[in-house]
Structures are given as C-alpha cells and as structure tokens.
C-alpha cells in the first residue's frame, strides 16, 4: 500500500509539471506583461530594462525553471489587479471555497446515497419514481438558474436566508476564516451549498441506484437471501458496500469539480472564494492569479485522486491482494 501511494505520488510529478508549463505559458501568450506593467507610454530603454529585470531575456526553459522554483516556495507573483501577492489572495479565498465545497459534498452524499439505496431497492414504488423524476430536474437545471430561483424564494420572498456573502466569519488561523462558527455564517452557507450540491446529489442518487440494481442481481445477493438474512443486512451490509468503488470515484472527482468550478455558484452568491477570484481575474486578464489557480486546481484533483485510489484498498480486499503481496 505504501509502495502504491509512493508510485502514485511520483506519477503526479509529470502531471503537475505539464500543468505548470501551461499556466506558465499564459504569461507568454496572453497579453504582454511588460506593457501591462509599464503602461502604454514608455521608452525602448525602459522596456529593455524591465524585460531584463523580469528575466524575460532568459531562455524559455530557464524562465520556466525559475517559475517552478518560485511556485514550490508558494510564490506566484503579484496580482496585476489588486497589487497583492497572489499566494496571499488565494490563501484568503481558499477556505471559503473549501468550506462551500465540503458543505455541498456532505449534503449531496447525506441525501444522495440513502435516496439512491431507497430507489434502488423499491424501484416499483411511486415515491421512487417521484424521486427519479425530481432528480432529472436536478441534473438538468443549470446552477445559475437554481441559485437565482433559491435566492428569489428564500431570500427575497420568504426572507429566511441571506442572498450573498459568507455572513460573519471567525478567524481560525492567520489566514483561515471559517463560517461554520457563527449562526450567520451557517445561514449564509445554506443556499450556495444547496445550489452547488444539487447536481452532485442527483448524480450520486442516480449512480447509487444504478449500482444497487446491478448488485442486487448478483449471485451473492441471491445467496444472502437464500440464507434468510434480513433485508436490512442484505441492502446495507452486503449490497451497498459493493456499490462503493464507483461511487467513491465519482464523489472524489466531483469534489475536485466542486472546488475547481464553483465559480458560477460563487458569482451568483458573491461568495468570496477562489471561483469568484478566478472570474474577476479572467475579466481583467490578471494572469498571475489565473496561472496560480490553474496549478492549485490541478493539485486538488491529484490529491483527491490519490485519496480515492487509497480508499479502493480500504473497500476492496481483492486489490490489496493483487497489488500488495
């Protein structure tokens, strides 16, 4: 298992280098940093001086090496737009996004898995058919529409929940602020988390249901029934466990997706997270922020993939046997 984890970590290095290359290439191909920094009016001498100071006269791969070296030390340069270190900007925004994505995931799993099991076991019941019909809406409605509808209903008409922001946040460390600690923070989290989690929830529901239907047809479930085990044990002890491998895969990938692509939800709710930062940066071509976000998202995906791979070992003893003698 340790060897497997180590080999996976080694495989992650070329992936990160490739993503680093792409995010580095942004500087070269999206706008000219010298012009951006000096403005329109500058002399040729000033330009050459700036090119030299920025190291842009060095060969491409030397520049790339500098970039990677800096990135390894958490240095991503200065935001063009906010004139602040990118690392600090991201550190301020990351907790908001992670909290939102976690809340959305937990919501999606807590509702999606039991409903998937239910609709898989009782597929003939009208309530299952109703869940499936409603879940179709969840899969097909875009997040911005769901968010706006939720705001309209719960924030504007009923005035139960706030429509934007994180509410009152409490600092946990120098840069990590949490919204979980105050009532206002939790209230502010509800609508964005529902919006972000709705799609994952319906996806998990449908996946768990399909896997349950598959597993309930297997011989070992028939044999479990033939041994007179209780329905509860058959469904949750025997069947659900066998659906977990694909479900874990999807939940993991989706969590990466939640972190990476929460920008729509964050924009709708003005949630001060990475997504909103990325959207604002793209609008003004704030390349240092964009490239740092790109690298970070790649890192998040790789980390989650590693966790998912390790979870397979926990769930399925056959993998332990074949890979780790």
């Amino acid at each position: 298992m340790f060897a497997f984890a180590a080999s996976r970590l080694l495989q992650a290095i070329p992936v990160l280098l490739t993503v680093g290359l792409i995010s580095f290439a942004l500087f070269a191909f999206v706008g000219d940093p010298v012009t951006i920094l000096l403005g329109q009016d500058h002399t040729e001498a000033q330009r050459l001086e700036m090119v030299h100071r920025l190291g842009l006269d060095q060969p491409f791969f030397i520049q790339f090496a500098y970039y990677i070296w800096a990135a390894l030390h958490g240095e991503f340069g200065i935001s063009y737009r906010l004139a602040q270190p990118v690392s600090r900007l991201i550190a301020e925004r990351l907790p908001a996004t992670l909290e939102l994505a976690s809340a959305a995931s937990i919501l999606a799993i807590a509702i999606g898995v039991p409903m998937g099991v239910y609709t898989g076991i009782h597929r003939e019941r009208w309530s299952s058919r109703l869940f499936m019909a409603v879940s179709l809406i969840g899969v097909s409605l875009p997040a911005f529409l769901v968010g706006i509808l939720l705001i309209l209903l719960f924030a504007v008409s009923l005035e139960w929940l706030p429509s934007f922001g994180r509410g009152t946040v409490v600092p946990l460390t120098s840069w990590w602020t949490t919204g979980f600690a105050t009532w206002s923070g939790v209230r502010a989290l509800i609508l964005p988390a529902v919006t972000l989690g709705l799609f994952q929830m319906t996806l998990i529901l449908r996946l768990v249901r399909a896997e349950m239907l598959e597993v309930l047809r297997t011989d070992y479930i028939r044999f479990a029934r033939a041994r007179g085990l209780t329905d509860r044990s058959i469904h949750f002890g025997h069947a659900l466990k066998n659906t977990l491998v694909p479900v874990i895969t999807i939940i993991g990938l989706q969590f990466g997706g939640l972190v990476a692509f929460s920008l729509v939800t964050e924009t709708v709710f003005q949630w001060p997270g990475m997504g909103l930062l990325l959207v604002q940066s793209v609008a003004v071509a704030d390349i240092p922020v964009m490239s740092a976000c790109l690298l970070l998202i790649a890192l998040v995906f790789l980390t989650i993939n590693l966790i998912v791979d390790l979870l397979y070992f926990v769930v399925d003893p056959r993998l332990r046997a074949s890979r780790d003698p």
Binding site: Y220, R222, A226, R227, H238, K241, D316
Partner: peptide
C-alpha cells in the same frame, strides 16, 4: 438451505 452453482460468484467478495 440452498447451495448455488458457481462458488466464484456466490460469496460476497467484500466480506
């Protein structure tokens, strides 16, 4: 009691 045909598929692989 019941005994099925294929022992490779009648035992739950995860238990």
């Amino acid at each position: 009691g019941t005994i099925f045909q294929d022992p490779l598929t009648t035992l739950n692989p995860l238990l």
